[in-house]
Each structure stands twice: as structure tokens, then as C-alpha cells.
Computed example of a mutant assay.
Amino acid sequence: MRTDIFARLDREPEPPKIEIPRMSRTRLALFGGTSAFYAAIVVAVLASTWLVALDWKVMLFRPFEQWPQPHAFLDYFVVLGQRGPTAVMVAAWLGWRSWRQHTLRPLLALGAALLLLNVTVGAVKIGLGRLGPHYATEIGSAELFAGGDIFPSGHTANAVVTWGILAYLATTPRARRYLSALSAVVSLGVGLTTVYIGTHWLSDVLLGWAAGLLILLGLPWCEPVIARAEVWLLGLRDRWRARRAPEPPLPVAAGAPRPDPVPQRELVSQVESGAAAQEHAPRHAGARSGGASRTATHTPVAAPVRPHPGRSERSPVSPTGSRRPPHSRPLPGA
């Protein structure tokens, strides 16, 4: 029994039509406002403004030393922002959704969001090269272009995208509200936890929230590409299954001879074994009474199986006369 996801999708009934989010005016306004906030954070850090000074105040305050009690719990909680574990958990849930809804769109939307996250956040991280609080060298400095990779916060942006995609793919308004609240709590908690344990500046977390939200807000622009990718993958699945399917037997016309049931390899082996037996068979000589003739005994060769001819293909037989050949043995006393 096949257990691949495509086979399970084929066995599921067609779901009701799923409403795909579109780029509305409200979404465009939120995208523009988030983009302005993103640019303002970058400019504030590049210019070493009050935001950089606030970063240093929070870091020197050392929250994990002021409140050490939740430190052990938050070390585990921050895993909800790591890309590997969260991607596996959310992909498992969306795989089940794909099975139930008879579509690959949930998994493809997750893949597109994570791809955009890696490209955009990774490019800014490498381009700005900011060092983290544990590796800072000069108090009051923005620590930019020093070979770091913590601006924006990858944990925070990943938490926004990975858990926010669940609300983005929700099929009912109630589920969308609950999942939006859940993703907001997890994203805020992961971002503040990185500041608490001292792995990120506060400005890193602010930019991470903005980066993840921009990806979720702009995801409807990727829906046409997701739809084409789904059609291509399902078509590839159908072609692969067609190549693996056994070929149907060719029809045989009425009255035509049926194909030889014995494979050709068996016929060849029978002929070769018969020829070898004939070549190595012992020959016996014997003298008949009054004659000088010798008779050699030969091992019979198995003739290849021939198809049984139809009635219309048989040669006519005369009703009179004998069909046996004339007697060739000499009469006694001859």
C-alpha cells in the first residue's frame, strides 16, 4: 500500500473552495507602515542615535542577573524561534492540512515564506555585520561592519514567520483570530527572551519583528507562483505514476492466432539443450540380417511449442484415401 502524501491526497474528497488572501488596501497600508518602521530602525542604528544608547543601557542592566528565576525556562522557550525545530513542527501540521484539504498550497506557502526569510534577513545580517552584546568591543558603539550576523534577530523574524503562517493559512475567521494571537505571543516572547539572555540588542529584536511581518504581509504577491508550482508538481506526479503503471494487454481479433504463451528465451533454451544432447549422444552400431546397413540412435530434440492454428488455417484433408505415408520397410523374403 502506498503511503506517500500524493496518494493520500487522491483518496481525500474535494474540500470547499479555500479563500486565498489578496493584497487589499489595508494590507498595502500595513506593508507600507512596516517598511517605514524597518527603514527607521536601520537608519537609527547606522547613525548611532538614542536607539543605540538604549541598546547599551539594556545590555549593561543584564536582565538575566536581575531576574535569574525564569532563566532555565526561557532557555527552552527560545527554541520556539529556532528555524530547524519550528520548521519541522509547523511542516508536520501543514502536511496534515494538505492531506485533509487535497492541496499542496500550505506546504508551498511555508516553503516560500522561509525562502524569503532566509534571503532577506540573511542579506541584511551579512551586509551590516553587527556584533552581538557578548562580543561588543566599545561602549556606545553600534558595532556595525565588524563581521557579526545578529542584526536583525533571526530568532525573532523566524518566530513571526513560522507561527504567523498558521494564521495566514487559516480557513475561518475564528481560527485566524486565535492563531494570530498565538503567533503574536510567541513572537513577542521569543524576541524579549533573546534580549533577556543577552544574545541580541533591543534594536535587533525590533528589526526582526518588522522583517518577519513584512514577509507575511507581502506573501499574497507570491500566491500566483505558489499556484503554478502546485500545478507543476501534481503534473509531475501524474507523469511519474503513468510511467510506473503496467501496460494493458493488446486486443486480439476474433479468429486470429493467439500470441505464443511460451517466452522466447524458453524456446531458445529448449532448442539449445536438444542440440547439445544430440551432439553428445552415444552412437550404437548394429547389423541387420543380410544387410550392411547401420542405424544410429539419436536423442529426440524437443520441438518448440507452436500456436494452435485456427480452423480456417488448417489445410484441407481429402475424405478418401489414407493420410499415412506409404510403408517403406521391405517385405519379408525380399
Rank of each mutant, 00 (worst) to 15 (best):
T3V: 12
D10V: 09
P16V: 02
M23E: 05
R25Q: 13
F31Q: 15
G32H: 04
A44W: 12
L46R: 12
L46M: 08
W50M: 05
A53T: 09
F64K: 13
Q66I: 10
Q69R: 15
Q69S: 15
A72V: 02
F77E: 02
V78I: 12
V79Q: 03
G84C: 02
A87I: 09
V88M: 07
A92K: 04
A92T: 10
R97G: 03
W99F: 11
T103V: 06
T103R: 13
L110E: 09
A112T: 02
L115D: 14
L116W: 08
L128I: 15
P133R: 09
Y135S: 10
A136G: 08
G140T: 06
S141W: 14
A142D: 12
E143W: 04
A146E: 10
P152I: 07
S153L: 04
T162M: 02
W163M: 01
A167K: 07
Y178E: 05
Y178A: 11
Y178G: 13
A184I: 10
V186M: 06
G198D: 04
W201D: 13
G208Q: 12
G208H: 11
W209P: 14
W221I: 05
P224R: 14
V225L: 09
E230H: 11
L236E: 00
L236F: 00
R239M: 03
P248R: 05
P249Y: 02
P249F: 06
A256L: 12
P263G: 04
Q264C: 00
L267A: 13
Q270Y: 03
Q270N: 03
G274E: 01
G274M: 01
A281S: 07
R288V: 11
G290T: 10
A292Y: 15
R294G: 09
R294K: 14
A302G: 14
A302L: 15
P304A: 13
R311K: 14
R311E: 15
E313A: 13
R314Q: 10
V317S: 00
P325W: 14
P326S: 07
P330A: 05
P332E: 02
G333D: 02
